[in-house]
Design a binder for these strands. Structure first.
Lengths: 143, 143
DNA sequence: TTTTATGTTGGATATAATCTAAAACGGTTT
DNA sequence: AAACCGTTTTAGATTATATCCAACATAAAA
């Protein structure tokens, strides 16, 4: 039932992915979304509108979109993985207390010395900060 | 039944953790181990020797050791988390293909501009590299 | 259109991690 | 060395997360 703006369709096609209502819905939701939803949250949000996507389809599409580099996955200790489709490069901040993930403005990180890499092939360099988010930080916050 | 070298006992005590044979075994195994085992692998290795630890105990102790900062946990997409107790600071490299985790020699990473952090409290700065490990990289490797 | 590789489905299954309440134990105090 | 008490361990049940499966549907190319 969703509308099919060409932009997203073309993005998908550009990565060799068909545009199905389900896949489109996942991609569109992630792009218009400021946070870092879990697969379960995406499943619920996408299905609140319409063509009922199955759980398997959500997982399939997230896998494909991540493989295509259109979506980023953030693994969490114990909890469900989180996803985002922010076009801009950025780093991540994970709150030790509430587990929320927030974006941190991107800045260049120096790569390791070539020697310490050996024959490894670098594809990506991901910076993850940990600590307490604004809500969980002490100082007059509801603790 | 394991021996109780004081070094580890003191490390545990220093973090307010009792030294039990099970907890000691987990800590000792992680310290003498060069890789990044999963909880299941730790469970098996620890129990190959003796006092059979239950699965719950392994998880309990890993949680406590991570909280105490003695053990580091690396969350993996889909797969089981991995652990290490390397004293030296280091970064991590995760292979896209085989999922193995390797250490990368530590080097200082610039922190983000204070302004982009807002009221967030930084505790740690973790650098994760992704790509292909030496085994999985092409070029005369068994592909 | 027709065709076909690709995508979807819901339920079963696998995997990872946590919970539970009773029993055992470590370390301290006496 | 005996008692004490908060911590830890235990086995199994339970929850949470993710994948598999094989039949069916469909997007996009021919």
């Amino acid at each position: 039932m969703a509308i099919y703006p060409d932009a997203i369709k073309r993005t998908l096609a550009g990565s060799g992915l068909r545009s199905t209502p389900q896949r489109y819905a996942v991609m569109a939701f992630l792009m218009e979304q400021a946070g870092h939803p879990t697969a379960a949250e995406i499943f619920e949000a996408v299905n609140r509108v319409d063509p009922r996507s199955s759980r398997a389809t959500i997982y399939n599409n997230l896998r494909d979109l991540v493989r295509a580099g259109l979506v980023r996955e953030v693994a969490m200790e114990g909890r469900a993985a989180r996803f985002d489709a922010r076009g801009m490069r950025h780093h991540h901040f994970i709150c030790d207390r509430c587990g929320n993930v927030e974006d941190v403005e991107w800045y260049k990180v120096p790569r390791p010395a070539a020697g310490s890499l050996g024959r490894r092939v670098l594809r990506e360099c991901e910076l993850i900060f940990r600590g307490l988010c604004a809500k969980c930080a002490p100082r007059r916050a509801s603790h």
